[in-house]
Write a protein that binds this DNA or RNA. Structure first.
Lengths: 106, 106
DNA sequence: TTAACATGCAACCTGGGGGTTGCATGAATA
DNA sequence: TATTCATGCAACCCCCAGGTTGCATGTTAA
């Protein structure tokens, strides 16, 4: 289980339709098992499992075992990290533009 | 130039180290040309160009031609879209957890 | 204790992403 | 005008992400 926890991996984990759908699903209905996550999806249970593992590697989700099923849930802190990252980007960009503006005017 | 403007493509465009480095570069020093973006990078100018196109497809950056060089700049609005998306996810998740909590307690 | 159910593991297939090289073309400058 | 410089285009390569199928294992319920 190689932990891929930098920003690029985090965004990459969000950069897939199937995975975003999983995130949505978890957000709407809370933690749930793999088979339940698979129900309603056009894709195999195995595919879902792989996607969950990818997101787990990025720290986006994790699972706890309950009897024969494993229940997956989101890690909102990690989502916030991504959000904060983008916020910094955005601010930095505004600053760069301001500097440029000032430079041009002189 | 197929426009790939949904959330998945947006995050995918951010989900690569080289591309994130480009974003950083643009944020730090403002708009700049391809060769300048390539300078200091370990990869070819062509690779950089491809990455820029990917990000352009996602609406993250765009270019304007100045004589023989094309100057690329970030589109902060798109960054904010991603940020907002994550914010909604985060809130939704908290709500789902609250509902679950209430359900368990009954 | 059997049968149904939820998951894990492994092998396999395919397309496209990330990268390179070589050459062509239009702009700038000496 | 001849030459350098910034970019575009196209072909090519390799690897891995996304997906499937088949079978094995552990858990629950009849």
């Amino acid at each position: 289980m190689p932990a891929r926890r930098n920003s690029a991996h985090l965004f990459a984990a969000l950069g897939d339709q199937t995975r975003l759908r999983l995130v949505r699903r978890l957000c709407d209905d809370g933690p749930m098992s793999i088979t339940r996550l698979t129900a309603g999806s056009r894709v195999t249970r195995q595919a879902i499992t792989k996607h969950l593992r990818v997101m787990e590697g990025a720290g986006l989700v994790c699972s706890t075992r309950h009897g024969r099923e494993s229940v997956w849930h989101l890690d909102a802190r990690r989502v916030d990290e991504a959000r904060t990252y983008l916020e910094r980007i955005s601010r930095q960009w505004d600053a760069a533009l301001a500097r440029l503006q000032k430079f041009v005017e002189e």
